[in-house]
Nucleic acid binder design. Structure first.
Lengths: 111, 111
DNA sequence: TTTATATGTTACCAAAAGGTAACTAGTTAC
DNA sequence: GTAACTAGTTACCTTTTGGTAACATATAAA
């Protein structure tokens, strides 16, 4: 469960609220990448090659702050960090699945 | 059906593809607003008060170019313009419904 | 001794997104 | 004669987002 503060005159719309958490160019893809298993930072980065490591770090941090995933750091050399969806994050699976389905049914990639 | 050109090295991900069409701060809310009926420009604007008219115009134009909605202009005074989802736009309803459901189940607005 | 490793951080810059305020048009109501 | 109406457009600015390149770290392998 997530709490969002409203500003004056703001309408309490469920879709608007959700977009405050997973709106943005990369967050749904990151969550989609983690939907069925935990992954290391490098794995996520390799699977989303157009996303720079800097931005990936930022987005992961925000998703963690919003309670959608956990970050587990192992103090090894070289370092290892694993990201995994929380229960709240997992509850997004129906949304991600519908997005995946729509993309598969309606998008043709060319070239 | 939508065609998206890939750049070199890009992965053909259904979620990434969908985000190119409806990613962004406002597009899902606009589509959600039109999910069950056609609406005039002013109606949409009134229902999304934090969205400026300038940005609404831009977003509607992009959604029209991407084939998700139609724009019907009546040459009356004062002017009237109606926006309505196309079949492709309507095919997004399952996604929008899951987003709505998740928002209603998981978000508490405070204040 | 140098290089490679994984996961970052930092400084700096460019591009995209979004906002406000002023302006437009042609008819109707005051 | 002036204001209100709707659906924009335009100019200008700010904020957000995103990118690149360099650096840090501790150990192991060459």
């Amino acid at each position: 469960m997530v709490t969002i503060a409203t500003k004056k005159g703001e309408i309490k719309c469920p879709v608007t609220g959700m977009l405050q958490l997973i709106g943005g160019k990369w967050k749904p893809v990151i969550l989609y990448c983690l939907r069925s298993e935990k992954r290391r930072f490098g794995e996520i980065s390799a699977r989303i090659p157009n996303l720079s490591r800097k931005v990936l770090t930022e987005q992961l941090k925000e998703l963690e702050e919003d309670g959608l995933l956990t970050r587990k750091q192992f103090n090894e050399i070289p370092p290892r960090v694993e990201y995994e969806l929380t229960e709240l994050g997992k509850s997004l699976k129906p949304v991600l699945n519908e997005m995946e389905k729509w993309g598969n049914d309606n998008i043709i990639y060319k070239q």
